[in-house]
Simulated assay, not measured.
Amino acid sequence: MSNIDIHHPHSLAPGQARKAVQEVAEKLAERFGVDYDWAGDTLNFTRSGVDGHIALEPQQLHVTAKLGFLLGALKGPIETEIRRVLDERFT
C-alpha cells in the first residue's frame, strides 16, 4: 500500500478555503466516483482503492491518502495531479 502525504500552504480565509476544497471534492466525485463527507474541518474521501482526507488547517491544507495495490503503481502521477490542483486553487 502506498501513502500520499502533502502539506500545502494557503492564504485563503477559512470559508473560502472550505469552498475551494468542496469544489475539488465535487470534481473528484464527478470524474472518479469518489464518495466524500465533511467531519468538522476535514473532508474525508473514499472509493475502491483509495481512502483519504483533506484537513483544513490555519494557512495550510494537509492531504493524506492511502492507495491500494493497483493505484499504488500510479502514486507518482496521482501525487503530481494533486499538487497541480492545489497550486491552481490555493496559490
Rank of each mutant, 00 (worst) to 15 (best):
S2K: 15
L74T: 11
V24S: 03
L86V: 02
R47N: 10
K75E: 08
P9M: 10
K27M: 12
T64Y: 03
E88Y: 01
G72C: 08
I82Y: 08
P14A: 10
T80Y: 08
V50K: 01
S48C: 03
H10N: 07
E23Q: 12
L67F: 07
A55V: 04
D37V: 11
S48A: 11
W38I: 02
I4P: 05
G68W: 06
T91R: 11
L71D: 04
S11F: 09
T91M: 02
F45E: 01
L74C: 10
E26T: 06
I6E: 06
A29N: 08
I4R: 07
S48Y: 08
L71M: 15
G52R: 05
Q60I: 02
D87K: 09
E88G: 01
P9C: 10
A13F: 06
E26K: 12
R31W: 11
I54S: 02
R31S: 13
L28A: 12
V21W: 00
L70I: 15
G72F: 10
E81L: 12
F90E: 00
R31Y: 11
L74E: 07
D37N: 13
W38C: 01
Q16D: 14
D41A: 12
T91N: 09
E30Y: 10
D87F: 01
S11T: 14
E23H: 06
L86R: 00
F69M: 14
A73P: 00
V50Y: 01
A39H: 13
D41K: 12
D41R: 12
S48H: 11
